[in-house]
């Protein structure tokens, strides 16, 4: 995929911005691709909603605005309600299944992956790393960035002393998604 448009959305405190930053950092610094992340502030960033937009490409990125996301990751119902209809028709939707109910349904043709990210994170001891679980799932499902690049980026960008937990969460999300795609879990 030469240009992938990614939107990650949820609510404040879930580490949505950091997840986007790490994804872009992995793509540019370790996978040697190009990436642009736009942060928006203003009304949509208030009231608890958080969203980050990224474009990852093997080519130079001209227009930095996401038009139709190829990949949408949602970690809150509000984010689902707001963005679900914008996913490209053959795009990928990844949801935290405990936080998001798929009503109204996503556009036809969209591949949906349900990942209990917060539950997996809680089992690891800290719900705060649910964003890393989601990044693991995103990495396994979309292959937009290599897992090696993601792990390097996580190690260098998360707060000191939390690297191990964050990597563990990333791997848990990655492994879950692999099993999900093989039909070993539902």
């Amino acid at each position: 995929m030469s240009r992938a448009e990614v939107v990650i959305a949820g609510f404040g405190g879930q580490g949505i911005m950091l997840a986007g930053y790490i994804l872009g950092y992995a793509a540019t610094i370790y996978d040697r691709k190009n990436a642009v992340q736009m942060e928006s502030y203003g009304p949509e960033a208030r009231g608890g909603a958080a969203k980050t937009e990224l474009i990852i490409s093997t080519e130079e990125i001209d227009y930095p605005i996401v038009e139709e996301p190829d990949i949408l990751v949602v970690m809150s119902q509000e984010a689902y309600t707001r963005y679900h209809s914008k996913v490209k028709s053959n795009g990928t939707l990844i949801i935290d299944e405990d936080l998001v109910d798929l009503t109204p349904p996503p556009p036809p043709g969209v591949s949906v992956y349900k990942v209990p990210a917060t539950r997996i994170a809680e089992a690891l001891g800290r719900r705060i790393v649910a964003n890393m679980v989601m990044l693991g799932a995103l990495c396994a499902i979309t292959k937009v960035v290599s897992p090696k690049a993601m792990e390097e980026a996580i190690k260098s960008r998360v707060p000191k002393g939390t690297e191990e937990l964050n990597i563990k969460a990333f791997r848990a999300g990655y492994d879950f998604a692999i099993r999900l795609m093989r039909g070993e879990v539902d």
């Binding site: 540019t28 610094i29 992340q37 736009m38 942060e39």
Partner: peptide, 9 residues
Amino acid sequence: ERVAHMREK
């Protein structure tokens, strides 16, 4: 603002 809030290589 667009270039100021833009993150890129």
